[in-house]
Nucleic acid binder design. Sequence first.
DNA 1: CCATTCGCATAACAGTTGTTACGGCAATGT
DNA 2: ACATTGCCGTAACAACTGTTATGCGAATGG
Lengths: 184, 184
Amino acid sequence: MATRGFAGLTLRAVAAELGATTGLLTHYFPTKQALVAYALDLLEERTLSRPRRQSGGGLAALRDAILDILPLTSEARDSNRIWVSSWDNALADPALSADYARKYAEGRDRMLQRVIAAQEAGELPPGEPTDLAAGAQAFALGLVVQALFDPAAFPPGRQTELLDNYLAGLAAGPCPISSPDPHA
Amino acid sequence: MATRGFAGLTLRAVAAELGATTGLLTHYFPTKQALVAYALDLLEERTLSRPRRQSGGGLAALRDAILDILPLTSEARDSNRIWVSSWDNALADPALSADYARKYAEGRDRMLQRVIAAQEAGELPPGEPTDLAAGAQAFALGLVVQALFDPAAFPPGRQTELLDNYLAGLAAGPCPISSPDPHA
DNA sequence: CCATTCGCATAACAGTTGTTACGGCAATGT
DNA sequence: ACATTGCCGTAACAACTGTTATGCGAATGG
């Protein structure tokens, strides 16, 4: 199921996996889209309510948030696999696209709170925190994609190494260099 | 085509877009997978041979490389849209997955060369350049995904702003903090 | 203990998919 | 001018899709 791709996700396949038939599925879901929507909601809820890392406040909390996203375990890999596969379907439907946009905006908000906390703790230099939050989520998402396609090149240790390097750069870095001013 | 998703990419739809029928397609391609493989190869070649930004060496070159990836124009948005949509199909086939892994490894190599050049020019602090390259591509990929789902929140100006902030952090930052040494 | 309702399997349905076979039409070579 | 070749449209094919209709068996309620 997590290995056959979104295109191979057919009602009969799901029913077979459940040891049931299509009758059950059509009895509980009016349409297939409703089923996949429910399944993805369930996946999101499950991963969100999964025991989260909580090794500290400030920068460590930001690190934890990203670690909770990365495919470091086989379970997390499957989740990300399904999620990435669902992007095709989501991009084809404007309503679903808006839903996904909202989800990622919420993700950035979660990052934002931790970025602000880290800044207040002095672990991150000042600077527009929303930019840092968006950048952190971009880093996480991009690393997820690369790790999914090349698990051998991105074992858990490598992923955390890259993350720690990224965070170290953030901590030492971003003096707010305003973009070159055309008129001056 | 770029808007109907990968699942809606049917032989008859492609033929209709071409003003032809399925006979033409089956005459030139033994199977559908061969067609999409050719189409994606063509897309890759076209975007790779597209006029690339070249505003300078070192860090500016790295910036250019990422700008060439981001969906800053409608054309680039369509390319990225198709590319992201193809991930579902690619993840379902191990051989295709390996192909994609190779492609992204090549992308990291392109980043790597520019990272090294920037380091030699003193525009980036020393540190493992392969890590920076992987991080830069992760940042680019993740920003692509977020921008595709929420174009309103990530207009071109916002994307370049985030990129410049990221690069500024890189330039000021990464003093090579080795990860905590267990035995010492 | 019987009537009723509900849950779900069975089966049929129309539509679409990739693929294959066939035939005509135009270009080409002699 | 004629035969031949290859291009490609037409149409058929089997397989499979989501969805709908039907019916049986068990649980439920009086």
